[in-house]
Design a protein around this nucleic acid. Sequence first.
DNA 1: CGTCGATTTGAACATAATCAAGGTTGGTGG
DNA 2: CCACCAACCTTGATTATGTTCAAATCGACG
Lengths: 243, 243
Amino acid sequence: MMDSSVAVSCSNCSVRRLCLPAGLSQADIDRLEQVTRRKKLVKAGETLYRAGDPFSNLYAIRSGSFKTVVIAADGDTQVTHFALPGELLGLDAYSDRVHPSYAEALEDSSVCLLPFTQLEILAHQVQALQQQIYTIFSEELRQENDILMLLGKRSADTRLAALLINISSRYSRRGYSHSKFILSMPRTDIANYLGLTAETVSRLFSRLQREKLIKVSGRAVEIVDLVGLSELAGTHCSYEESH
Amino acid sequence: MMDSSVAVSCSNCSVRRLCLPAGLSQADIDRLEQVTRRKKLVKAGETLYRAGDPFSNLYAIRSGSFKTVVIAADGDTQVTHFALPGELLGLDAYSDRVHPSYAEALEDSSVCLLPFTQLEILAHQVQALQQQIYTIFSEELRQENDILMLLGKRSADTRLAALLINISSRYSRRGYSHSKFILSMPRTDIANYLGLTAETVSRLFSRLQREKLIKVSGRAVEIVDLVGLSELAGTHCSYEESH
DNA sequence: CGTCGATTTGAACATAATCAAGGTTGGTGG
DNA sequence: CCACCAACCTTGATTATGTTCAAATCGACG
């Protein structure tokens, strides 16, 4: 890990308000920084961790994006998450001390390493951090609920619409445009995530464009009719979850 | 809450080894009991909490079973969980301080009330409890991954097979037969959970019986060919997660 | 400019949804 | 004890939706 000497500081991190430091006092952030000194660069297509790897760190995404994938006994795979900057990876490994999924960078990315044992000790001393960890766990659970909702809905167009709304709101939360963004993942990953085939996803992009809800050009997406898309998705465009 | 005076003790609870006390010393359990004194009875069809209710307690199921359901903006519902004895309900409410789903008893049930604020304070003092809470959060996340896997798989028979295997292993963990059990939920709930219709689920039960993988009579299920069913489910029957 | 992977599009097919009856089961009251 | 009712479950016929297989096109990159 030749890049581990790179100095990292939460204080001047561009995604700190979305990450663990959110809501912490400057003094607490100073203490947090003592366990988050190391970062790691992961190139597009490389894995951050593999299924079965021992659990030692959580990873906070500084830049780039990842997909997490679980592998069934029969070798079948399922994309379970698309993770964006400020989001945490690896929480689901705690109980087994082993990562149940693998995380692969969708583009060149940078992550902070959070040694969990040290984080645990610090959380014991800093009440606000403890609560922040609970919050992140809980938010993760709630987000999974949303995905379940999405996959439970039968129609394919509803699923894609919901994913676009979801990604849009997450980009907007990062401070980027909520109407124009570049999807970092290929159609096959979107399809796998939504429980569809790549062909169907491609057709849906075409259809949504024909219906003047979005504009697509490869992985570049522009949401033209947010209200219409939200109605299709069934999740009346929720941008209020930002704060 | 007229039943709140009923004395409850973790020490002699039949599901303690599946619940929060798992792995705690007797001394720690004694302390835990001080915050878990109250229990509540919920009749079949009644709700334990509703979506939007303020978060104040976690609920540990002592007996019976529940479904948790999220309601989309368009009124559409999605069953997200079937919860059995020893399992905890309400964890996903932490971040918003509000329950994002409702929990309804599938049969007459009994739960322990765990006031989260008190639990949090105690966890701060008892390291083992703190870790147990992390573990439960993390297990919950991992379980959600399994469900995603399940919904992502295209074929309906695979989904039902996977659910049966999952429920079977959970019953076995409780000490009950893993080959014979009574499903406490109606077909419509199974269908909603699996992203199918009740008719399809009914046909699938018939088909799995015709193929000699199971025997069904209403809600009573017997798994005849566990290996065959596991192969269909794709999750090579995992009973090793018990300990 | 050529190559390879990713994407789009088309046509035939499969799977599960929908619509529509029947058939069970358990609880209630005569 | 039996009749009745209301949920719940099963089964069949038809239809809709998404998959599969196949081929053409696009686009990044050497």
